[in-house]
């Protein structure tokens, strides 16, 4: 709690934390938007979301090791993960799409454990990072430091998001995806192949998770057990922002990034993960009591 006083004594710290939080937030927004997409279109909550981020991170790391600048790794990771997502859909996901939600949650949870263990066995448990070599930016006479890669990652995240939006809006497949999200039965009646739509949706989701993972590997680190917090963050952002509202997803993600940074600073870094999970529980319970006032339930 001593850190709390520090915060009041030097307001420039506030700027630092706020800036860091916003810059992380954009990366959270990518994975969260992917979750909202899959949830909205397929009615599936993908617990393996964070593992897709983790795999994207490893893709960037190995490309970096092969001498490719990690920034170019972002589109490559997205493409690789699109393929991985497609395969996962064809192998597992399509079998649980129409089953009850609990089965799909459990199946994707199993998938998440499987991917963690695969990564652990194949890539090792070491913490990795893909060095961008961009250096650090000093603001306010050195009182606030921003590594340039975070700024680049922020821009890249927004760009990826914008790219996805355009795809959903302009392409035929994108339109089919949006139609399926609005009314799956009508979409099927109109001759849309929902199975293909689902495969594309899951692939796209994996692709943006991959991009976000590559950015994570550049800005921070990647390791096999990185996933779950990303899943939980995505879930939290989606339940705050709702499905299909991009601006709200971005706002919630930036807010979460900032909140997390402040919590990490005030409570100590060892409690930052605890904060994320506790916040999830708190938000759910708060929503539940809020709805109960209107005699409604969170379901």
């Amino acid at each position: 709690m001593g850190n709390l006083r520090l915060l009041f004594e030097s307001p420039v710290l506030l700027v630092q934390l706020l800036l860091d939080g916003i810059l992380i937030g954009a990366i959270f927004a990518l994975a969260a938007y992917g979750m909202a997409l899959v949830w909205g279109v397929m009615g599936l909550i993908n617990v393996a979301q964070g593992e897709l981020v983790m795999l994207g991170g490893y893709a960037a790391f190995y490309l970096y090791r092969a001498g490719i600048h990690p920034l170019f790794a972002v589109p490559v990771a997205a493409a690789l993960l699109f393929a991985a997502g497609w395969l996962l859909y064809r192998a597992v996901i399509f079998r649980v799409v129409d089953k009850d939600l609990f089965i799909s949650i459990l199946a994707t949870f199993g998938l998440s454990i499987l991917l963690q263990q695969l990564a652990n066995t194949l890539f090792g448990a070491d913490v990795r990072t893909a060095e961008s070599g961009f250096g650090t930016l000093f603001l306010f006479g050195g009182a606030v430091t921003v590594s340039r890669i975070k700024l680049v990652a922020f821009a890249a995240a927004l760009l990826t998001g914008a790219f996805l939006m355009q795809f959903l809006r302009r392409s035929r497949m994108g339109q089919a995806i949006r139609a399926t999200a609005q009314n799956p039965r009508a979409a099927r009646v109109m001759g849309i192949d929902t199975d293909r739509v689902h495969a594309w949706t899951f692939g796209l989701n994996a692709a943006i998770c991959g991009a976000s993972g590559a950015l994570v590997a550049m800005t921070w680190i990647v390791h096999p057990y990185l996933g779950l917090p990303y899943t939980v963050r995505s879930f939290m952002i989606v339940i705050i922002a709702g499905l299909g509202n991009v601006a709200a997803v971005l706002a919630a993600a930036l807010g979460l990034g900032v909140a997390e940074n402040f919590a990490g600073f005030i409570l100590g870094a060892e409690y930052q993960a605890a904060f994320v999970f506790a916040l999830l529980v708190a938000i759910l319970v708060w929503r539940r009591f809020w709805l109960a006032r209107e005699r409604r339930y969170l379901r």
Binding site: V47, L101, F102, V232, A274, F277, A278, L284, L298, R299
Partner: peptide, 18 residues
């Protein structure tokens, strides 16, 4: 326990890990 369905599942997941 006022949460239903998948909200309960994910909420409890968060609880254990927290």
């Amino acid at each position: 326990l006022g949460l239903r369905g998948h909200y309960f599942a994910i909420g409890t997941l968060g609880l254990g890990i927290a």
